[in-house]
Design a protein around this nucleic acid. Structure first.
Length: 289
DNA sequence: AAGCTCTCCTGATGGC
DNA sequence: TGCCATCAGGAGAGCT
C-alpha cells in the first residue's frame, strides 16, 4: 500500500541506482503492467531502448524517469502491491515479475517491476511544458511539494460538497495521501472522516494539512533509511508495518490519546479507523432550504 | 458537471 | 479438508 513516503523512498533508490544508465533491453512479462501505455508492450519496449535515464521525479504517488534526448518520460505507479527492484542480473525471477529493464553497462544489475495484484504499471508519455508526463497533468501537487498552495487548498475544501476523507484521497485536490495516512492525519487532527469539508475553518484545515505533513515526514524518516542498499524498495517488508500507526488497523485497541476502543467502519469499499471519542461524528447536516 | 460507485487483481484468511 | 466468501485498496471509467 505505497503512499507518498514509500514512493519517495523508491524515487531516491531509482535516482541512486538507475538514473544515468542507458536502457539496452526491455522485457514485458505481463501486458496488464503496461496497460496505461496505449500502443502496447512492443511499442513500450522499443521506445525505451537506447535512451539514458534522467533524474527520477515524483508527484504524489506517481514517479517518472525522463528519457534523455526525447520529450518523454517513463511513468510509474506502484498501485497496491508494486515494487521497483534493482536486482543482480542473475537473480531468480520473482513470482510476480512483470517488467524487466536491462542496461548497456557492466554494473551487473537490472531494474524489475514486480507486482502481485497488477494495479500498478509503467507507461511512456509525452512531457508537458512543465516537464510532467501528460497523463498525470490532472494530479495535484503533494503536500511535501514546496509549491503546494495551502491557501488554495483551503479554498477548494470550502467549495467542495463532500467529506474530509474523500477530499484527502482526491488526487486532483491533494496528492500522495492514501487510506492509511488519511486515517492517521484525521486522528491526529481529531477530525471525523465524514466531516463536511465546507465546515472546516481556515485554522482547522491548516492544522489538518500540518498533520498530513507530519505523518508523512515521520514515515519518510523511517522508510528513508533503507534506500542505500542494492534493492530500491521492498514495500511491506521494509518496515512498513513496523511503523507506529495510531489509527489504521487498530480496531478495538485503545486510542493512544484517551484509551477509548478504536472503531472501524466500512467506507468506500475499504475501512476507516477512528476514535469515537476524539473524533466525534459531525452533526447530521440539514439539507438547505 | 461535480460527486459518487463500481471495477480491475491476487493471495491470505475465516467460516462451515 | 475443501470450498466459498470476504478483505485489502489506487484510480479511472462511467453513472447520476
Amino acid at each position: 500500500m505505497p503512499e507518498l513516503p514509500e514512493v519517495e523512498v523508491v524515487r531516491r533508490g531509482l535516482q541512486r541506482w538507475v538514473s544515468g544508465r542507458t536502457i539496452a533491453e526491455v522485457e514485458v512479462l505481463h501486458p496488464r503492467a503496461v496497460r496505461r501505455h496505449p500502443a502496447g508492450a512492443g511499442d513500450f519496449a522499443a521506445r525505451l531502448k537506447g535512451h539514458s535515464v534522467g533524474i527520477a521525479r515524483r508527484r504524489g504517488k506517481y514517479l517518472w524517469l525522463p528519457l534523455a534526448d526525447t520529450d518523454t518520460s517513463i511513468l510509474g505507479h506502484l498501485g497496491m502491491s508494486g515494487q521497483l527492484l534493482v536486482q543482480p542480473e542473475d537473480a531468480a525471477d520473482e513470482k510476480h515479475l512483470r517488467i524487466r529493464i536491462r542496461f548497456d553497462d557492466r554494473l551487473g544489475t537490472e531494474l524489475r517491476f514486480v507486482d502481485q495484484r497488477t494495479f500498478g504499471g509503467l507507461s511512456l508519455h509525452d512531457n508537458t511544458p512543465e516537464g510532467l508526463p501528460d497523463a498525470i497533468a490532472h494530479i495535484a501537487r503533494d503536500p511535501l511539494d514546496p509549491a503546494f498552495d495551502d491557501a488554495a487548498f483551503h479554498v477548494a475544501l470550502r467549495l467542495r460538497r463532500t467529506t474530509v476523507k474523500r477530499a484527502l484521497l482526491d488526487q486532483s485536490l491533494i496528492s500522495g495521501v492514501g487510506n492509511i495516512y488519511a486515517d492517521e492525519a484525521l486522528w491526529r487532527a481529531r477530525l471525523h472522516f465524514e466531516r463536511p469539508t465546507a465546515t472546516l475553518t481556515r485554522p482547522r484545515s491548516a492544522e489538518l494539512l500540518s498533520h498530513v505533513r507530519d505523518v508523512m515526514n515521520a514515515a519518510l524518516a523511517v522508510g528513508g533509511t533503507s534506500f542505500d542498499s542494492l534493492y530500491v524498495n521492498v514495500n511491506g517488508e521494509s518496515g512498513y508495518f513496523d511503523r507506529s500507526l495510531d489509527a489504521y488497523g487498530r480496531e478495538d485497541e485503545p486510542c493512544r490519546r484517551c484509551g477509548t476502543p478504536m472503531r472501524r467502519r466500512p467506507w468506500m469499499n475499504r475501512s476507516s479507523y477512528f476514535c469515537p471519542r476524539c473524533q466525534r461524528a459531525p452533526r447530521p447536516s440539514r439539507t438547505s432550504s
